[in-house]
Design a binder for these strands. Sequence first.
DNA 1: GTTGATGCAAACGATTTGCAACTGC
DNA 2: GCAGTTGCAAATCGTTTGCATCAAC
Lengths: 157, 157
Amino acid sequence: MTAPMDNDDFPPHLRHFEQICKAAGLKLTHQRLEIYRELLEARDHPSAETLHKRLDARLPTLSLDTVYRTLTTFERLGLAHRLETRESQARFEALSQRHHHFLCDRCGQVVDFTWPGFDMLALPPALTGIGTIHRTSAVIYGQCAACLAREQNPTTR
Amino acid sequence: MTAPMDNDDFPPHLRHFEQICKAAGLKLTHQRLEIYRELLEARDHPSAETLHKRLDARLPTLSLDTVYRTLTTFERLGLAHRLETRESQARFEALSQRHHHFLCDRCGQVVDFTWPGFDMLALPPALTGIGTIHRTSAVIYGQCAACLAREQNPTTR
DNA sequence: GTTGATGCAAACGATTTGCAACTGC
DNA sequence: GCAGTTGCAAATCGTTTGCATCAAC
């Protein structure tokens, strides 16, 4: 509809995307590709609406519902995670290296961090027989330095 | 409005509640007390709507908005946690002993489990200087045994 | 009596859905 | 050409809010 699809000069990470879609019997649409690309580049756990805004320049006719539908599809395919935040808006991230999340109780900011000690931890015995484990994740709640500073020094210093 | 408040024969955990409210300058209303009591007894991370239904017998005039408002207040006071689930409905739990959550990707069920190994783990160095830590929590995603069984043996056996 | 809390109804906002037109395969 | 996908608009549903009344202190 906008530009022709040049499947042959896909960079490696998009070839991987192509294969996943093909294996799942999903069509490789222009919209899906661009949404995935945008999510891959995003470092800030964007919401569906944020992604939609960012894609507006490249795909002016892209609808917000398609972004929602596509992100849900990605989640099902294991291409994206839906973050559990305390906001009403869900936020997404493409899968990259193993990391965890710090959530600021004040501003709602999500900060990624790595935690090798946690990643290496043996699963708790209490979970024996619970079923299959897909993913383990640590979430740390607190107040970020910026919010702390803002409260202690409302204006300056 | 319904029954008189007998502040003097409160069980210990409700006296604690009374003190927290008093310290925060909040009125000890009948509704707040009953919502807290119900949340304390609940073992299943009820949603605001579920709590409202359960309280209907005791407080027929209780409105759903009050449940929402009250749970938000409890969260602010540190009397309850809002769970981050993948459902649209938020779910709450009163604070009890330290535990973590297993979330089934299929049925959305939340299962509590203890994980002493995690609780004893040192915080990751990556978080140095991030701010103040309020709470750490582990979330494990997977498929519960019931959902596994249902998919392998759709009908019987 | 004063101040904050409640109940009601209406608003809000994120997300989902029905459907007809369209496009990748 | 067919099945799956999109865009549009409308619906859905959890949650929040304005406001007048009411209860706790």
